[in-house]
Design a protein around this nucleic acid. Structure first.
Lengths: 113, 113
DNA sequence: TCGATGTGCAACTAGACGATTGCACATCAC
DNA sequence: GTGATGTGCAATCGTCTAGTTGCACATCGA
């Protein structure tokens, strides 16, 4: 499975129920049925959410007897965070440079295209 | 305007067209019409995307003559990244602790609730 | 002044998405 | 064995959303 792009990763994190699921899994591995018992949605809905999270690598599944338990992958979220931070910083520095150029317009005028 | 929650922030970042818009704005301020000229969607669609991005604080608008130009707010993305990283790390450490407990089960048994 | 350009608002459409119910099948415990 | 529990797949439904077109109005430049 390849690394999902940023919009896909963010789409997986754009649903409150999925955050609820991730938070529960952050406490320890759980099955879809166990999650459905503590969350106000059906097991099938939970299953679909888990599939979305699994596709982007935010959770992993593990067969335990007849149960399938899911574990959250914290490193995945951290790597996404690093990427977002890198982009945000590049925007900040770019904006800063533009502002600095605006403050000294006669020092080094940009070439006319 | 209050700080949007994580799912709302991620929802704003879950659309490829919005990432395209943010990337363009990362190069410098642009108006909705200017964006519509370089992107394969209508100006109205661009306007809706900009409204979504403005609501979560990822862009700011500025009246320049008859135009309304938009600027990307890199700091907003960076703060989101910090929050995601904090959560991801907490999941990682929790998982690590569970694994360590599993390796030495007779050393310090957890109290029964 | 007048055309070109930019913006705002409204109505509409097609598709994605979250959630449900129902059923079939596997597996564990007594 | 038998009931209870867990999983998988399919069909369905209502809502949200990204996109469109159309029109009215404001503003800039020649």
């Amino acid at each position: 499975m390849s690394v999902p792009d940023l919009p896909t990763m963010c789409a997986a994190l754009s649903d409150p129920t999925r955050w609820e699921i991730l938070t529960r899994l952050g406490q320890g591995a759980m099955s879809a049925s166990a999650l459905a018992r503590v969350l106000p949605v059906s097991r099938q809905a939970i299953g679909k959410h888990l599939e979305v999270l699994r596709e982007v690598g935010l959770v992993e599944s593990e067969q335990r007897g007849r149960e399938v338990v899911y574990l959250v992958v914290g490193a995945r979220l951290s790597s996404l965070a690093r990427e977002l931070d890198r982009i945000g910083r590049s925007w900040e520095t770019r904006l800063l440079r533009i502002k600095q150029l605006a403050e000294q317009p006669d020092q080094d005028p940009p070439p006319r295209p």
